[in-house]
């Protein structure tokens, strides 16, 4: 049991939060997500003698976790409510960045100053808008964004997960942020500005 390539519990546990968020976003249920992570850690522990190279530990763990999540869907007759990360096809839209900038690289429109973004975080309505904006991203872009910002994978792990090249990753994340930013500005920050002006009028 105590061979040198045996993975320690502590080492496995380090990856628990990331795996939990990964499972949670797909299963939308904390108990199920917890179970999937538990099963994954157990399987990893049992198979740890087969694991080589601790650098890719998280990739390996997520590989196992994906199987556990797939098992769950197979077992349950429940409909898949959320877009499963793996079902997503490419949806490259090469022209879409152009709308944000003019041909000389200057902003076309562009970011206005937001009034008290911190306050927005405390408002229920803001989160509905945030969710809408996030869901409005093209599927592949949403996946990359969520793996990075919601699950908390490192950039290179996201690339491995999604088979994106470095260059494509940077472009995709940049576009995701441009789109989200614009959506939040239009649907929330400019709206609340108008509302306030009305109130004072």
């Amino acid at each position: 049991m105590n061979t040198s390539n045996q993975l320690s519990e502590a080492l496995l546990a380090e990856h628990r939060p990331v795996m939990f968020r990964y499972a949670l976003l797909q299963l939308k249920d904390t108990e199920l997500a917890d179970d999937a992570v538990q099963e994954t850690l157990l399987a990893a522990w049992q198979a740890s003698a087969n694991f080589e190279g601790k650098a890719g530990l998280r990739t390996w763990l997520i590989g196992i976790l994906k199987h556990k999540i797939a098992d769950h869907w197979r077992r349950s007759a429940r409909e898949v409510v959320t877009a499963e990360f793996d079902q997503i096809d490419n949806d490259e839209d090469e022209s879409d960045e152009d709308a944000f900038f003019m041909s000389n690289g200057h902003w076309n429109g562009g970011p206005t100053t937001w009034n008290d973004p911190e306050a927005a975080l405390k408002q229920q309505e803001f989160w509905a808008i945030y969710e809408t904006c996030q869901n409005n991203l093209p599927p592949k872009m949403a996946k990359v964004f969520m793996l990075r910002e919601l699950v908390g994978l490192e950039a290179e792990e996201v690339c491995r997960e999604t088979s994106l090249s470095d260059a494509n990753y940077w472009v995709t994340m940049h576009r995701a942020r441009l789109r989200l930013r614009e959506c939040l500005e239009i649907r929330w920050f400019n709206q609340s500005k108008t509302k306030k002006e009305h109130r004072h009028a």
């Binding site: 949670l24 976003l25 970011p111 937001w114 975080l121 996030q134 919601l150 942020r177 939040l184 500005e185």
Partner: peptide
């Protein structure tokens, strides 16, 4: 450039919002 300055602070805000969103979902 105020627009790029806005972009900079807004992308940091979006990151913060994404983290908060995950916590709330949980």
């Amino acid at each position: 450039c105020s627009r790029c300055r806005n972009f900079q602070s807004q992308t940091q805000f979006i990151r913060k919002a994404a983290h908060r969103y995950t916590e709330q979902l949980q």
